[in-house]
Amino acid sequence: MSKASAMHQEITASMGANIGNGDLDFLFESNILCNTLGLDPTSLGYVISMAIECRENGIEIPAISSELTWGDTASIRQLILDIAARQGAGDLLAEGVKRASDKLGPNSSHFAMHVKGLEMCVAEPRTQTNLALGYATAPIGPRFNICEHDWDYDVELGWPHTMQGSNTLVILERIPMDYLGPEKVRNYKALSQIWSATDALCLCIFAAPPTRSLTLEEMGSLLSAITGWESSSYEVMAFGERRINLTKIYNIREGITADQDTLPERFFTDPITVGRWSNYSIDKSKFQEMIQTYYSMMGWDNQGVPRYSTLLANRLEWVVADGHLEKVE
């Protein structure tokens, strides 16, 4: 194709290795198709990989091409067009992996990689347990920018400068990427709050604290310069925490419950097969303990519902008065 289009980092995996595609030209082409047709490339990649795995495992998808398989660019290209036009098999798959799986039956759920209906992010959570916790518990579902990635803090791989800015968040030690325990939860709480604030203030995470060019104090100064009101790093962190609570309350009101704060089962049952973490998967019981620790640190009950004292601390008590949330002591 003679066109060009801006490319996000995630498509290199979602429409690359995730679907068995090693053709760089087709990767560029699929990116152009996504931008032209209004498709999310990450969700699209996981829809396609689900369709391929369903075919491999004898789960019938009406009108799916018999040629669809890993890396077959011709059949994948046609499926992209069918999804955009909602024709043939694309009509079902355009609904995303959760809704498509619900219609295909329970045998397909193993291949529907999502949390709360949002397709997975391409950054591996089995070896990055901060990300795993974020994918599972974040009200918005799995996103690569839910918090700073674990390898920045790894005892072997972490950047030398990582700890300089992180000390301002009271992150004082490096922790192995794959560690499952309360110390990781403590770090995740701080890291998710600062990136929540970054998102709310429309700052680019690639410049965000604690490991990028901006400092937490500079974020407060920028906010003051733009708005004209006095601000501080404390207020920035408070914005991040308040936003997480507010989006959590919205989810609860809309019927999303604690049992959806989890990961696709494959991350617990299917080990990594190559490299440094070969044969590694997440210990589900330890991961569930991390979730309960996070709930407690956030001031939520064991079902992930913010307690009234937490609402007061975040100036959100009005959600009870307005009927959006039941009062939990």
Rank of each mutant, 00 (worst) to 15 (best):
Asp199Gly: 13
Gly38Val: 09
Phe26Ile: 09
Val319His: 01
Lys3Glu: 14
Ser75Trp: 04
Ile32Ala: 12
Glu156Phe: 12
Gln260Arg: 09
Glu241Pro: 03
Ser224Thr: 12
Glu95Arg: 11
Ser233Ala: 14
Asn57Lys: 13
Ala238Trp: 14
Arg55Phe: 05
Val115His: 01
Cys202Tyr: 10
Ile11Pro: 03
Leu81Lys: 15
Ala207Cys: 11
Tyr153Asp: 00
Phe144Cys: 12
Leu37Trp: 11
Asp25His: 06
His149Gln: 09
Leu118Tyr: 07
Ser213Tyr: 00
Leu214His: 13
Val47Gln: 03
Ile146Phe: 02
Lys248Cys: 08
Gln303Thr: 07
Gly117Asp: 08
Ala17Thr: 11
Glu67Thr: 12
Thr293Gln: 09
Phe26Lys: 14
Ser5Thr: 13
Ile48Met: 04
Asp154Ile: 01
Leu92Ser: 07
Gly240Ser: 08
Leu180Arg: 04
Ser2Pro: 03
Phe28Ala: 15
Ser221Asn: 07
Gly158Ile: 04
Thr42Arg: 05
Tyr46Asp: 00
Leu325Gln: 09
Val170Leu: 11
Leu316Gln: 03
Ile11Met: 12
Gln288Asn: 03
Thr293Leu: 07
Ser108His: 07
Gln260Pro: 08
His161Ile: 02
Gly304Trp: 06
Leu316Ala: 07
Ser192Gln: 12
Ser109Met: 12
Val115Lys: 00
Ala238Arg: 15
Leu92Tyr: 10
Tyr188Gln: 01
Asn21Phe: 13
Gly38Ile: 12
Met219Ala: 00
Ala6His: 10
Thr127Asp: 06
Gly22Val: 06
Tyr280Asp: 01
Pro106Tyr: 05
Leu44Ser: 01
Arg242Ser: 12
Ile226Gln: 06
Leu169Gln: 00
Gln164Glu: 15
Gly275Arg: 11
Glu60Phe: 11
Pro182Phe: 13
Glu329Leu: 10
Thr310Gly: 06
Met237Lys: 02
Thr137Trp: 10
Asp283Glu: 15
Tyr308Pro: 04
Ala94Asp: 05
Arg307Gly: 13
Leu93Met: 12
Leu325Ile: 08
Phe287Lys: 03
Ser231Gln: 06
Tyr295Ser: 01
Thr269Asn: 11
Ala100Glu: 02
Ile64Ser: 02
Ala85Glu: 11
Ser224Leu: 05
Pro209Gln: 00
Pro210His: 00
Gly22Lys: 06
Asn35Ser: 05
Ile272Phe: 04
Lys184Val: 15
Ala123Ser: 04
Leu81Met: 11
Arg276Ala: 05
Asn21Gln: 10
Leu27Trp: 02
Arg126Ser: 15
Ser109Ala: 11
Met297Ser: 08
Cys34Phe: 09
Cys204Met: 04
Gln164Leu: 07
Asp82Val: 09
Ala6Asn: 14
Leu263Asn: 07
Ala200His: 09
Glu235Pro: 01
Gly304Ala: 13
Glu156Gln: 08
Gly90Thr: 03
Val305Asn: 13
Pro142Phe: 05
Gln128Pro: 02
Arg243Trp: 13
Met163His: 04
Asp301Trp: 02
Glu119Leu: 03
Lys189Val: 15
Lys327Gln: 11
Val47Glu: 02
Gln288Lys: 08
Gly16Glu: 08
Glu95Lys: 15
Thr215Arg: 03
Trp277Thr: 05
Asp23Met: 09
Arg212Met: 00
Tyr188His: 07
Pro306Cys: 10
